[in-house]
């Protein structure tokens, strides 16, 4: 199942990048995508349950508008801090605990922490605890409240 899905994704990617529709190009696209998915089909869909991966992808699309809004807020905050003459920053490290289990959830949370205001992930561990560098006390409070963790827990779902 993951083999077929990976080869379809690879074929679509090849066609989008090349844009050629001659017979020889399509044949080489099919051969190359089958070869690549034969080698590495367990990397794109790591767990056996592929429907779960697709469900998580759909939930991720629902989550992304909120993330884009947070990125805009982060940039406004950082523009203020960078161009202020006296550089108003107080860096410190914080530890947070989450109950995320899957690799997908941990990866999405680590990238989201880096993109949202005032925080950068320094260490993401397998058991779901994070070491975070915060640039000031104000914007880091949103992370300690845990709204983002709840949203990403909803993406991960209860299964597996």
């Amino acid at each position: 199942m993951s083999f077929i899905l990976t080869s379809i994704v690879m074929f679509v990617f090849w066609m989008l990048i090349s844009g050629e529709t001659g017979v020889i190009f399509i044949i080489s696209a099919i051969v190359a995508s089958l070869f690549v998915s034969f080698i590495s089909h367990d990397l794109l869909f790591p767990n056996k349950n592929t429907t779960l991966s697709l469900k998580r992808l759909l939930r991720l699309l629902k989550y992304s508008p909120w993330l884009v809004w947070q990125i805009v807020l982060a940039n406004l905050d950082l523009i203020y801090r960078t161009l202020h003459p006296s550089l108003p920053i107080e860096p410190h490290m914080i530890e947070i605990e989450t109950d995320l289990k899957s690799d997908t959830g941990i990866t999405i949370l680590a990238n989201s922490i880096t993109l949202t205001p005032g925080t950068v992930t320094v260490q993401a561990r397998k058991d779901g605890s994070f070491l975070v560098h915060a640039i000031a006390h104000g914007p880091a409070n949103g992370l300690l409240k845990g709204t983002m963790q709840a949203k990403i827990k909803a993406i991960e779902g209860d299964e597996a």
Partner: peptide, 20 residues
């Protein structure tokens, strides 16, 4: 670019490089 030059240490330089 100004943030990468201006911020005081390595960890705070990560903020402009990652977000802005």
């Amino acid at each position: 670019s100004v943030g990468i030059v201006r911020f005081p240490d390595f960890y705070s330089r990560l903020h402009p490089a990652g977000k802005t």
